[in-house]
Amino acid sequence: MVVHRRVEHKDDSFAYNGRMTFPESATLAGQFLIAMPNLDDPSFNRGVTLVCQHNEEGALGLLINRQSEYSLADILEQMQLEYQAPELADVPVLIGGPLQQERGFVLHEEPGYWEASYRVNQTWSVTTSRDILVAIAAGQGPAKALLVLGYAGWDAGQLEQELKDNAWLTAEASHQVVFDTPLDRRWTAAADLVGVDVNRLTAYPGHA
């Protein structure tokens, strides 16, 4: 999916045209990276990232608690897709990371039969093709899904070093945190999964 920063610009492409590959297995695929309080990078401060790729070449993930200026209805209108459900205007589109924020990704659980989709693990899938938006507009998409713009990426060895530097906690990604927890509570809720009160920490080792 290509989303232009001006929502009124019409572009019916929903294909990821860059090179993005996901391996068959990845050490942290399907886990959360939960920013430690000492991580002051504005892109990740108090952030929660679901890791989609992690291997010897690096890592790729999607932030799940950064709201963009758009709603789902804005994106459907940009893609010239008609929809009937007025509540779509209240569904936020998230910022998945600082890289290529014109690219769109749909994070969901049901694998489905989409044109460009990858199963991160047995639970999570990421789809980048337009057909999933067509289905969502028609009320036939995944039961729950997040639409995010952009992604987060790490070079080979970078994430491993950040974990050693206590920049992140890790936890198995949770349906409840991704879909049912308010955005402003996802950081603390994700840390609760491993019994950590991040508000009381200054540094803490990551959990693999």
Score class of each variant (00 low, 15 high):
Ala85Asp: 15
Asn38Ala: 00
Ile75Thr: 08
Leu193Gly: 07
Arg46Trp: 09
Met1Ala: 13
Ala35Gly: 05
Asp41Pro: 01
Ala191Trp: 11
Gly30Ser: 05
Glu69Ser: 00
Ala171Ser: 02
Gly153Pro: 11
Ser43Glu: 09
Ala167Ile: 12
Val3Ile: 05
Ala116Glu: 07
Pro92Trp: 02
Ala137Gln: 10
Asp180Pro: 02
Ser129His: 09
Glu109Ala: 09
Gln100Val: 03
Asp41Val: 07
Ile64Lys: 14
Val120Leu: 07
Asp131Lys: 06
Leu183Gln: 01
Gly47Ile: 05
Asn38His: 08
Gly112Asn: 13
Ala152Phe: 10
Val196Met: 07
Gln78Ser: 09
Glu57Val: 02
Leu201Ala: 13
Ala137Phe: 05
Arg119Thr: 13
Lys164Trp: 12
Asp180Lys: 05
Leu146Trp: 11
Arg46His: 07
His54Cys: 04
Asn65His: 09
Gly18Pro: 03
Glu24Tyr: 11
Ser71Asp: 11
Pro142Lys: 09
Thr49Asp: 12
Asp155Tyr: 10
Asp11Ile: 02
Leu159His: 13
Leu163Asp: 08
Tyr16Asp: 00
Gly112Asp: 15
Thr181Cys: 07
Arg66Glu: 14
Ala59Gln: 04
Leu146Thr: 08
Asn199His: 01
Ser43Thr: 11
Leu76Val: 06
Ala190Trp: 07
Gly141Phe: 03
Ala143Gln: 13
Leu183Asp: 10
Gln53Tyr: 06
Ala189Asp: 06
Ala189His: 00
Ser71Lys: 11
Ala116His: 10
Leu159Phe: 12
Val194Tyr: 15
Arg6Leu: 09
Glu160Ile: 00
Trp124Phe: 01
Thr127Pro: 05
Glu172Tyr: 04
Val148Thr: 14
Gly139Trp: 03
Leu99Gln: 06
Val91Met: 04
Leu50Thr: 00
Leu28Gln: 11
Glu172Met: 00
Ala89Asn: 03
Gln67Trp: 13
Gln161Ala: 06
Gln67Thr: 12
Met20Trp: 04
Gln84Ile: 10
Glu102Ala: 07
Val2Arg: 15
Arg130Ala: 01
Trp124Ile: 06
Asp192Ser: 10
Val178Gln: 02
Ala152Leu: 12
Thr127Val: 08
Gly96His: 08
Lys164Leu: 15
Glu172Gln: 01
Glu172Pro: 01
Met1Cys: 10
Leu62Glu: 11
Leu146Phe: 05
Arg66Leu: 12
Ala73Pro: 08
Leu50Pro: 03
Asp11Asn: 15
His9Val: 15
Ala15His: 14
Glu172Cys: 05
